[in-house]
Nucleic acid binder design. Structure first.
Lengths: 204, 204, 204, 204
DNA sequence: TTCTAATCGAGACGGTACGTCGGGTCTTATT
DNA sequence: AATAAGACCCGACGTACCGTCTCGATTAGAA
């Protein structure tokens, strides 16, 4: 077992890290993930290659961190770090609103390129996939779980329903359409998904 | 614009094509998609690189064709080329049976590696994605549309439901779990999906 | 020992041969010897590659034959097939005249490219070199031997001189300058060569 | 016009350069120039191809430098870097001695293969030829010029003779025989050349 | 505030694979 | 049977990046 000397994070250059994030996101957006190279990121960031290899094991990890950082920044700007699905008492309306916001985000070009790339890499790279799911996907899905639990408490959803599965009825179709481009994603579509799904979850 | 002279398909070597398919599938299964190289496929198939470049524009296209061919072969062996979802009159039972078979297929290692790889490539390569969807995915989904239409005719499903969207309620979650490894896929899971979804599609 | 079936020369296409000669000479002149390829010759001659491989073992042999043919043609046109060095009785004048003609030929672009190419190939390919020397060079040199022998008979050259060596005193320097581009070749230069050399060959 | 970034010569690996020289010379000697490939040199030298392409534009240039280096090494070993043709007062004897040494060198297999290859390449590649002549050939010939000038000073050679041309009378024939294999090269032959040539250069 | 050790920008290095070119063989249909 | 055409296997080309490895130059924490 070869020990790689752990670099001293306290002396790390914040400027370089930012520049690397920016370069990685910009390149993925401009030339696509496969044509984005470590060398290209380093050159664009005005950084030595070694500085990248010192802190990240692969370009996928660079992009994942850059993307997480982008998300944090966006959340911080919106001032809504502790994100929640609203609870107006009308479950269908709340879900439709959230899904419409998700549609907007999925169509935002700033997000599209990197998240597609990460999803693609994850399909084939199990380790990255786990990290992606744990850090990004599951926290999002947990919000739906919370909201559905609340709905069960008020009787809007049958108590025997597993919320972790139930949420997939409307979340997965949207994800699928987006990832595989099987069909366009619109507000009308997500509204319909919620309608179809909730029929089945509501008590008789 | 330089025109590449179109090769004469009638003189194409069938033996080479088969060998390339086999090599591509074997390598993807053995070393994974990213480490599968055109050079490796050529070497394993006992074929010149040029023979690959003559007929396919990229390794993704090689793999797509190889996979389509694999599917055709499998179907031909099973003697069930005009595939259909059974119609016993019990929609829930029929869907559960089909989804269980799908689970088996998704867990079959012969299919897993190449289809993951193609899905991953499709996320980032729109042209390939379209071909993948058109040649493989949509034909499969159409079978569900047909079965749901039949269910609407017998009154088992509400007539105002769009079958193309309805089918996503149980198909997409399964696909999602498989692709993103968010959770294990089991018979119990698919059965539950069908139950949840059909509640919502059945008449009141 | 694998026997290569000897092709039937009587059925050979004269038209193809001519086309191949023309194409080979043209290409060597236009793009240079290294960039002249068998494939290129075949394409330009409107001939299948196999037709070349059937009759010649290598591109050097094609060019050698093409060049020999070119020489024969030129000689036939000039109507002087049985070539001779003139014998006016004045050895120096005769040699100067012949060398001046040689200078002209060496500077003729039609001859320069192919003969350079053949010389180059010969340096590294002994078999070709022997053929080149035997078919082209030695016959030429023999003419000088004859003329020098005649000069010895008239007493213009010492009888103990070996004509085969003596001729090299003026022929080789010219060849060398041309081949290696060490210095320009002119009439004045060849005249000087003859003067210097004959001093040494003349009786005291 | 794309500018290729000039590599930083101060950081060049001396070990790699030596290994490349050795590999190039060894391969040319073992398999011949045409079968010597950049890939083969790199593999034999244990070096990446790019390291060759970074510093030399072609395999001919690699070989030329390797050969120049070989010559320098040999000269340094012999401790006779400022090489001179001896001047014992007997011009004929001095020239014969030097030419005999040249014959030895031309027949030394370590020198034969690469110098033939370079000569061949030079015939067809003018740029290389100029470099070869300037760096290797002319310095050698200049030694003869010097010796002949000295001979003119002592009256051993006629004052109106151009030494640069005179030297070709014995040097070029030897070179020619060696390059074109028209006849074997021996001490007797070079002695004869000197005799024939000096007759013509000596005063009456 | 100076010293000093780690990080940094830069890029040369040994490699692997790319996509292309051409060599020489073989097959097919045409003459 | 020779031919034009060109697919085939193969080896080398010159290029792009990989991940590792030096090099000064800089820079931040401990002295």
């Amino acid at each position: 077992m070869v020990k790689k000397p752990v670099p001293d994070a306290t002396r790390r250059s914040e400027k370089s890290r930012r520049a690397i994030y920016d370069a990685a996101l910009a390149l993925v957006a401009e030339v696509g993930y496969p044509k984005t190279t470590i060398e290209g990121i380093a050159a664009r960031a005005g950084v030595g290659k070694q500085t990248i290899y010192r802190w990240w094991p692969s370009k996928a990890d660079v992009l994942l961190e850059a993307f997480l950082d982008l998300g944090e920044q966006a959340a911080r700007q919106a001032g809504q770090v502790p994100y929640e699905i609203p609870d107006t008492g009308d479950l269908a309306a709340d879900l439709k609103a959230v899904l419409r916001a998700t549609v907007d985000e999925l169509l935002d070009p700033r997000f599209e390129a990197p998240s597609r790339a990460l999803a693609a890499e994850g399909l084939v790279n199990e380790q990255l996939s786990r990290e992606f799911v744990a850090k990004l996907l599951e926290p999002q899905l947990q919000l739906y779980v919370n909201r559905l639990r609340a709905a069960q408490a008020t009787g809007a959803v049958r108590p025997d329903v597993d919320p972790r599965i139930a949420l997939e009825l409307f979340v997965s179709p949207l994800a699928q359409r987006w990832l595989q481009r099987t069909a366009p994603i619109t507000y009308a579509y997500t509204d319909t998904l919620v309608d179809y799904a909730l029929y089945g979850l509501a008590p008789r």
